[in-house]
Design a protein around this nucleic acid. Structure first.
Lengths: 113, 113
DNA sequence: GATACACTTGGCTATTTTACCAAATAGCCA
DNA sequence: TGGCTATTTGGTAAAATAGCCAAGTGTATC
């Protein structure tokens, strides 16, 4: 795997990593319904506000969410709705799930083959 | 966030975590073109075979890939093609990307609002 | 100005993840 | 059987992550 290919996959992995945490997935889901400020999310999640703020920072750093200050509150919103579209696939993977050997017919929706 | 909600997001995060690594994303992409055995992937990726095998184990444990032994080789294939569909969104996030404040019009494709 | 929120940042520890090597397992073939 | 190839598993050290507290910044409100 050469340099530029590796970089491409590392960039993608950066976005996936930002999504690879339950609280951050919750945030994305919640923001898909509309903007929220930090303390609303903090209340819903139940961790320390500093923790939630850091999660938001992670999502923001890769461009999944953006923020806008209004008064003393900071409102976050989802910038990439397509992320939410993936949740359906996530559920399918979870249902598909004992997850091991290739039983005949267990392959679905293979592309470009 | 109550127990069952948390569990749901943790399950989803498990799948995302499995995808949150450049080599594993590469593997998924490669398998979308057809099945591959471990040493083919090892050659392409350039890490130790034991490392690649572990990556495959991670993908398999969440049900994204499955394996089938043929002779002394183990062939892996993609079980959940929908995962690959998400790569387009990943690229969009990357392009969308200085990634910070909500410029007017920077919101796209918001759902259920 | 003082106080109170709302939020972010720094610091720190605990946990998880990663990658390599070495060793174990399994199939193939002489 | 013995050797060879293909793959997995165990062990381990290094690096990345997560979450809390404390301290800092910015915006009202009194």
């Amino acid at each position: 795997m050469n340099e530029s290919i590796r970089e491409r996959y590392e960039a993608r992995a950066g976005v996936m990593k930002a999504l690879a945490h339950p609280s951050r997935l919750y945030i994305v889901d919640e923001l898909s319904k509309g903007e929220r400020c930090v303390h609303e999310l903090t209340d819903a999640i139940g961790s320390d506000m500093s923790t939630v703020s850091k999660h938001l920072g992670v999502l923001k750093s890769v461009g999944i969410v953006c923020d806008k200050k209004r008064g003393s509150e900071v409102y976050y919103s989802l910038r990439m709705g397509c992320v939410v579209d993936f949740f359906g696939c996530l559920e399918a993977v979870l249902r598909g799930g004992e997850g091991s050997s290739c039983a005949p017919g267990s392959l679905r929706k293979r592309r470009r083959e």
